[in-house]
Write a protein that binds this DNA or RNA. Structure first.
Lengths: 122, 122, 122, 122
DNA sequence: GTGGTCTAGACCACG
DNA sequence: GTGGTCTAGACCACA
């Protein structure tokens, strides 16, 4: 899996990392139980400090995407909890509002949603 | 329109403000050409620093939601540009990925999208 | 409130800090809503790095003892969740086992528990 | 006796092992003078490094739970010293503090203590 | 002035 | 060789 950092992006590196790994998991590029590269390894590869990668992993761990195994390092979680729908809804409403302000109707909005959903899987 | 800020929330106040105003515009609580409260007025009402409100207004202005008028202050824009689809898509893909990781399929995802779209309008 | 660090103690500084603050809250030395010293302030007072104090505060925050307020910094939480009984029980069973191995019976164990409970409040 | 280790657990394996053996001794699953499995045997059974088991045994030895016999290996100690009350009290105070913060009173705390004490013996 | 981010590098615990 | 802890210091975002 290819992970890249955009230094021009305003969002912090650890968040970019976290997002790309989530996208990778969703795309099926990682199997459940598979190990991610070690924090120091990935940090070296990306040319960032290992604390930064560590923070991403910690975040993914808190969110249930990965599990820190004492021996295998960071491992893709098997089953992920479904509780966080509230936050998904909150974010979706904001995106919907931005779309509405730009004159996008429900049908078109759903079409965009579907298109992006499928793009994740490719 | 009711705006509430949460200092416990991790997202900055100016962003919370900006988001709620966007939601308000989408819900039709403001007409095009209508004025928002003055920076100082809103700041006083919310009990926040007026620099904070100022930053929100500047943000909304940069994004095309409002225009700053020397006399009428912040005014809801008439027509808003549709350019930012790239960012909409980027955010949607991330939300889709998070949903996929939690076992939500395309149909259910679209149902959630539709539900939240309609909730904005109420 | 007096916080001290024992460099001879094997447990990490951030944990010692966390524990002492929990003891302080239980003893009523902090009111709900009261602010803790800023991370950098406390770090300077204790002669440790601010990241270390930061970690303690983050931990206390995750556990619900404090809340990070964007303006007031770290604030003692009003109501704390009661969910963590499982961990309390697990730890208690281990302590009980150690006591049993040393020939301490239930009555004496409970007497020790009560004594220490009351000592926290003083 | 059934010993299970959890590599996802944040506490080190040697400590998990040590804790479970202490619980086993308290529950009467070992007689004084009885031998524990050899370091290599237990390590193989659990699928862990034998250094890890070794460290647990050394720990138990230092604490007086077992004695290392050149022929019989690790043997459950006959009489265990009662000195460590200080540490017991320190840990109990912390648990009491956590309980107090969550609104648990002395009576309820003692009830929980008693319940867990008895559970160790079963 | 507050916390957040990031870097850099040291030492230790663990397995 | 892995992650965890701690230090030190820089810069930025926020209010």
């Amino acid at each position: 899996m290819i992970i890249s950092i955009d230094t021009l992006n305003t969002s912090p590196i650890y968040e970019q990392l976290r997002d790309q790994i989530v996208l990778g998991i969703a795309a099926g590029q990682f199997e459940a139980g598979e190990s991610l590269p070690s924090v120091r390894r990935l940090a070296a590869d990306l040319g960032v400090n290992f604390h930064t990668v560590n923070k991403s992993y910690r975040m993914l761990c808190d969110e249930g995407y990965i599990v820190m195994d004492r021996r295998k390092g960071a491992v893709i979680a098997g089953e992920m909890p479904r509780n966080e729908e509230l936050d998904l809804s909150r974010k979706l409403r904001l995106l919907a509002a931005e779309a509405i302000c730009r004159g996008i109707g429900e049908d078109e909005f759903l079409k965009i949603c579907g298109k992006n959903f499928r793009e994740v899987l490719t």
